[in-house]
């Protein structure tokens, strides 16, 4: 009687340890990308961290159903997007306008940093339907097909949105440079 019980518990705890290991690997491998993606969705670091926490906690609960790392990535993104949508159902947060806030204060003032800040503001100004596929491509290295699958869109739509996203960034950047050039000149 007793030895059976002990045996069972031992195997349960080894399953548990296994799950724990998989979860740690998942967190270490993907938390940065997931956080960044969350940040670009919500434009706020604290909220992005909250959503990331929720996402990984949910991931833990259904970790057993997960097959490989590629699936894990797309799965986490799906949870994240759902969490984000839910947040909007619950209440509309007061989002700070990105133009008013210096996102990154560390090592400012170098030419590159100024350019990055400018670029971030431009990227944040993109509408969500353009920003989302662009970030999937940039952060996760997704192909057009993969983005289409993730966002449940047709591939042509995705390619058009990616083109428009880059085009808008490019034009905004050129305009800003022109403006600066004129000021400097």
């Amino acid at each position: 009687m007793f030895w059976r019980k002990q045996n069972k518990e031992a195997s349960v705890s080894s399953d548990m340890a296994n799950k724990q290991q998989r979860y740690e690997a998942l967190v270490l491998a993907l938390h940065a990308d997931i956080f960044r993606y969350a940040y670009w969705l919500v434009k706020d670091k604290a909220v992005a961290e909250d959503i990331t926490q929720e996402t990984f906690l949910r991931a833990w609960k259904s970790l057993d159903t997960l097959q490989d790392e590629k699936a894990a990535k797309s799965w986490l993104i799906t949870i994240l997007r759902r969490e984000n949508a839910r947040r909007f159902e619950r209440k509309q947060f007061d989002l700070v306008d990105i133009d008013d806030v210096a996102i990154i204060d560390e090592q400012l003032s170098s030419e590159v940093e100024i350019e990055h800040r400018e670029l971030r503001a431009i990227m944040n100004a993109l509408s969500d339907e353009y920003k989302e596929p662009l970030m999937l491509q940039i952060i996760f290295g997704y192909s057009g097909d993969e983005i289409a699958e993730q966002l449940n869109l047709n591939k042509n739509t995705v390619m058009t949105r990616l083109f428009r996203a880059r085009n808008q960034v490019k034009e905004a950047l050129e305009k800003a440079n022109e403006h600066r050039g004129r000021q400097n000149g």
Binding site: H31, A32, F35, R36, Y39, W40, K45, E49, I103, I104, E106, E115, H116, L119, R120, M123, L134, M135, I138, I139, R166, V169
Partner: peptide, 12 residues
Amino acid sequence: KKITEASNIPVP
């Protein structure tokens, strides 16, 4: 490349 760098915000 620039977009990638800019999107690469530091993780807390």
